[in-house]
């Protein structure tokens, strides 16, 4: 499963009431329930699902789904 598919699955479970598209351009402003707390949940679940840990400077870095996917891929590559 590709990174974005996996992130999409996590977001579908997290934002149950959102049925719009999930694409790289989708950002917090597009999803009604995507507030700061939901962002924490999203990051925590991404860590769990991909077996990675973000650094403090990374947690608020991604501005949309595409940037989150890129960050995950970068960390997965570094992990080897």
């Amino acid at each position: 499963m590709s990174t974005i598919d996996k992130v999409t699955d996590i977001m579908r479970d997290l934002f149950e009431d959102y049925s719009g598209p999930i694409t790289p351009a989708i950002a917090a402003k597009d999803v009604p329930d995507w507030d700061s707390l939901a962002h924490v949940k999203l990051m925590v679940q991404v860590e769990r699902a991909f077996g990675i840990r973000f650094e403090a400077r990374e947690v608020s870095q991604p501005q949309n789904v595409g940037e989150l996917v890129a960050l995950i891929d970068q960390k997965l590559a570094a992990k080897g």
Binding site: V40, M43, V44, E47, R48, R53, F54, E55, A56, V59, S60
Partner: peptide, 14 residues
């Protein structure tokens, strides 16, 4: 420590 500093979680989300 990251989740504590970044999210103010009392302990690891896991």
């Amino acid at each position: 420590p990251v989740q504590h500093f970044a999210y103010k979680l009392p302990f690891a989300a896991e």
